[in-house]
Simulated scan of single mutants.
Amino acid sequence: MPFYKKIVINKTTSIFIWKIEEDFNTLFRQVQLKDVSLARLESMKSESHQNGFLAVRMLLQHIGYTDFDLYYDNFGKPHLKDGKQISISHSCDFSSILISSTITGIDLEVLKEKIVTIAPRFMDVRHLEGLNNVDKIKKATVIWGVKESIFKIKNEKGISFPQHIFEKEFHLDDNRGIAQLRFNNIIEEYCFQFEFVENYALVCAFQNK
């Protein structure tokens, strides 16, 4: 049972990570799915996506929930029936969920060289100056994760990563930072934390109030 890691952010917020080592059939046999989830699973064309979906349900069961406790709103945002906040992310070999008493967002991304090539499309590339190639990949991936996490929290149509979400300068050894969402004439500040799990960047964000 490859439950991989629990990361405690604070006394009301924790991240749970599952390393996907099982095949589809093994995962499928171990989870209970409501009809709508089964239909969603069957519609997925990629076995990798199916396994990530099932691994999220394995995580829910690991911490005392089931698929029947999880539902999605009209915008596709996940919720738990007991009122706890949940955010979900999976990528290739890992699935992760964040459980909190406050609204949060999580993103898990594999580290790939391509992120540096596309960085000008979503971030201020000056934040990569002076870094070696490995650290450029790490930092660009973290910044993507920051913007993805904030987008999951806000979940509003029209938000653009390069035009509306701005990260303040930070260093990789800080493991945390600040970003702003400037959208619809409103400025909101978010704090974020990150760490690296094998060849992945794991990022979570919270709104500063």
Rank of each mutant, 00 (worst) to 15 (best):
L131R: 06
Q50Y: 05
E22N: 10
V8T: 14
F183C: 10
T141I: 07
V134E: 10
S160K: 13
L27S: 09
N185S: 10
H62A: 14
R121L: 10
I115V: 15
K34A: 09
E47A: 08
F166E: 11
F151D: 07
W144Y: 14
I20R: 01
S89F: 11
I118V: 14
L172M: 12
Q163M: 06
H79R: 09
D23P: 03
I15M: 01
N10V: 14
K168H: 07
K114Y: 14
S14K: 08
T102K: 15
I9D: 07
P2H: 02
A119S: 06
L172D: 07
K34I: 07
F75N: 10
K45G: 13
R182V: 15
H62V: 01
E113G: 09
N208D: 03
G83V: 10
T104I: 15
V8S: 12
I63Q: 14
L41M: 01
A179Y: 09
H90W: 05
M1S: 15
S91F: 00
L98S: 05
G130P: 07
W144I: 08
D174M: 08
Q207I: 12
F122K: 09
W18V: 07
E148H: 12
L54T: 03
P2T: 12
R40I: 01
F192I: 06
G105N: 05
D73C: 09
Y65C: 06
I159V: 14
N10A: 10
S101A: 02
F16K: 08
E167L: 14
D73T: 04
K11D: 15
H62N: 15
A39D: 06
